[in-house]
Simulated scan of single mutants.
Amino acid sequence: MTNPDTRSLLKDPEGYADTSFVSDMSSGFSGNLGYTMPENWAFDQIATKTIGSGDSKIEIDNNIASGRDTGQGDFYPAPSQKLDIGFNLSYWSALLKEADEYMASIGRPGGTGYVYTRQQCLETIMSADAAISSASRRYRMRKALIQTSAFWEFCHYSYKDVVEDAGVVLYHTGKIPDWGKDLPGVNKLVDSSTGVAKVSGRTCILSRNNSIRSGLLEGDILDATSERDRWAMWQKVNQDNVFNLSTIPHLHIWAADGKAGDHAEAPIRRPALDYTDTETFEILRRYQGFGDQAIFDAKLRMPLYAIFEKYNRIIRES
């Protein structure tokens, strides 16, 4: 409850409270004696009424509402509104089988130029399940949206990508890293799409800047045109799987907001628990970019999204 004696100071700069219940009639408080209502008030206790008589007499609050909070309508939220939770390992074999068989059925990835097997890719994604679950809950988006982008990109991490990564290190340090010395065709490169979810230093900066400015993330605004800032961020997404995967939600939010600083897109609703298939498709497409290839690949990712969501739904509703 909010103490009216201090509510003129209640601005909640840390964002811990979404809304407030103002207890104007609670004993010991001074009620509406010259204090400003908190900016986030949802309900205000303005009077106490007595109903009944004798032993059946009770007092009830008479409250007014601002509309910021609609209150609780039931005790069992609709499945579409339930937050995702941690993965249940008893479903691991089934998830791996479905995801692997689907990717094989569409021939993605194909050939011998890829670094990791599909099982290794899925194992890496699921090893960071705690971070992915936390991010999905914090930003109220479907966990499958993060998993799909990560798994798809990691499966397509090729030896060409490794060569480009070595080129980035060469550009910024003047030396080819030990792991890239035997690679053919290493040339200097300012930035590359790297790590589990193939995130570049530039897009990482742009997406995180967008979330910082939106109040969703704490941190310093970096310059996406600065080679120094791009190199610093590139090293994080290249070397830290959790940081890389935790950037995906910000890439999705940035994409929904219109991808400021990149190829402009029309803003759409940010990822939500009740996202439609159309909205999901659009976010998956924007993750890859624009044009016919991005559209084609997004269509291929939709069944993969359905596989992840199938098991996430089973787990969150069990």
Rank of each mutant, 00 (worst) to 15 (best):
M1A: 09
D5K: 11
R7N: 09
A17F: 09
S20Q: 05
S23L: 03
S26T: 14
G34A: 07
Y35C: 01
M37E: 10
E39C: 05
W41Y: 10
I46R: 11
A47K: 14
T48N: 12
K49G: 11
D61C: 04
I64Q: 08
S66G: 10
Q72S: 13
G73E: 10
G73W: 11
D74N: 15
D74C: 14
P79T: 06
N88F: 04
L89R: 10
L89I: 12
D100H: 10
S105W: 01
G110Y: 15
G111W: 06
T112W: 12
G113S: 04
C121Y: 06
T124K: 15
I132V: 14
S134G: 09
R137K: 10
M141W: 07
T148E: 02
Y157S: 04
Y157K: 05
D161W: 00
D165H: 00
A166R: 03
G167Q: 04
L170H: 11
Y171D: 06
H172K: 01
G180K: 05
G185K: 07
V186P: 00
N187A: 13
D191I: 04
T194N: 07
A197Q: 05
A197S: 14
I205V: 10
R208E: 09
S211E: 07
S211K: 05
I221T: 14
I221D: 04
L222G: 02
D223N: 15
S226T: 02
D229M: 09
W231R: 06
Q235T: 11
V237I: 11
N238P: 10
Q239P: 12
F243S: 10
L251I: 08
W254Q: 02
W254C: 03
A255P: 06
A260K: 04
D262V: 01
E265D: 09
A266Y: 05
I268V: 15
I268E: 03
I268N: 02
D277H: 13
E279G: 13
T280G: 13
E282C: 01
I283G: 00
R285Q: 06
R286C: 01
Q288N: 15
G289L: 05
A294D: 01
I295E: 14
A298P: 06
K299M: 09
L300H: 11
Y305I: 03
Y305P: 02
F308W: 05
N312W: 02
R313N: 14
